[in-house]
């Protein structure tokens, strides 16, 4: 879709204010939910199915990516029947390799683009980067916003860039990375979320994973609430992807609780919620096996790709 007419756009400098302490208190409250027994097992299966299994390193090779893809399709063959992950997330140069490796599995290929992770490149380079990834077979594109322009108050620039990348994506779904660790306040997280959604994002995503802090529960809560408000305003569902820093299944389940209580049933699927993570999958698998066997697990029994 094209960008909505700018006359309908909100004043992004006037987006809702966020009180950080209140957000932290609310986020902490989700962690007091006690998730036991079948609720835990079902939650863990859901988490596994929501993972964007990620490798985004300078030293990535075709070999590494192929191994990761195998893991994505066969998380833990000792327990057949487990759901696969949602997607593989790689650099554009690895899209073709990954696409071929997961062929027929239903697992999506997500590619970062737009001069990931800094985004410090001219717009035409970013558009070419995006088109390249899509042409190579990416189902989803994870772009980064221009944080420098955002801090300069050039909200229209940021908006237009997202809209342009959305156009370049064609059929591919667009995830917009806000890199919340560089935005500085939750007010700005909310503002960036609103800009991204109005500009055509299919998903909003916290982080590249290259900056600390990456995803946190308070940041994710602010973004989920932005999605909720946007949904009430437009009727359009937007997906959410916290990325980076979620490596334990207990924390992932807290996120799931947050999604359930903020957005409800419709978002409890990998169509609308993802975890960007690399080491989370194995921890989830260990917990699933523990739930099924009643025995605490060792990492030695779970493949580390």
């Amino acid at each position: 879709m094209g960008a909505p007419s700018s006359t309908l756009l909100p004043q992004f400098s006037l987006t809702p204010r966020i009180d950080q302490v209140g957000v932290e208190e609310r986020a902490a409250r989700f962690t007091t939910r006690s998730i036991k027994k079948e609720a835990k097992l079902n939650g863990l299966l859901l988490v596994l199915n929501m993972i964007d299994l990620t490798t985004l390193e300078g030293k990535d090779t075709a070999g590494k990516v192929k191994q990761l893809c195998y893991k994505a399709m066969h998380p833990h063959d000792a327990y057949p029947g487990l759901p696969g992950v949602a997607a593989i997330c790689v650099y554009p140069s690895m899209v073709k390799v990954a696409k071929k490796a997961v062929d027929g599995s239903g697992i999506k290929i997500a590619s970062v683009a737009t001069a990931f992770p800094s985004g410090q490149a001219p717009r035409d380079v970013k558009i070419r980067d995006t088109k390249y990834a899509v042409n190579e077979g990416a189902d989803e594109v994870d772009m980064v916003i221009s944080r420098g322009k955002f801090h300069e108050g050039e909200y229209n620039y940021v908006f237009d860039e997202i809209a342009a990348i959305k156009e370049a994506c064609g059929e591919a779904r667009l995830k917009v990375i806000l890199e919340t660790g560089e935005l500085g306040t939750l007010d700005k997280v909310r503002r960036a979320s609103d800009i991204a959604m109005h500009a055509g994002a299919d998903f909003i995503k916290t982080s590249t994973g290259k900056i600390q802090p990456a995803a946190t529960m308070p940041v994710t809560l602010v973004m989920l609430e932005a999605i909720r408000d946007f949904y009430y305003k437009t009727g359009k569902m937007i997906g959410m992807k916290p990325a980076g820093g979620i490596s334990k299944s207990k924390l992932a389940v807290h996120y799931l609780v947050m999604v359930k209580e903020v957005l409800g049933e419709d978002w409890l699927t990998n169509q609308w919620f993802r975890f960007g993570a690399s080491s989370l999958a194995n921890d989830v698998l260990m917990q699933i096996v523990k739930e099924k066997t009643g025995v605490y697990q060792s990492a030695n029994y779970f493949s580390i790709d």
Partner: peptide, 17 residues
Amino acid sequence: SNTIKLKFDTSWSYAPA
């Protein structure tokens, strides 16, 4: 927008704790 509703009665629910 008042015709849009979120569904909080979810298929994933909490077991007694």
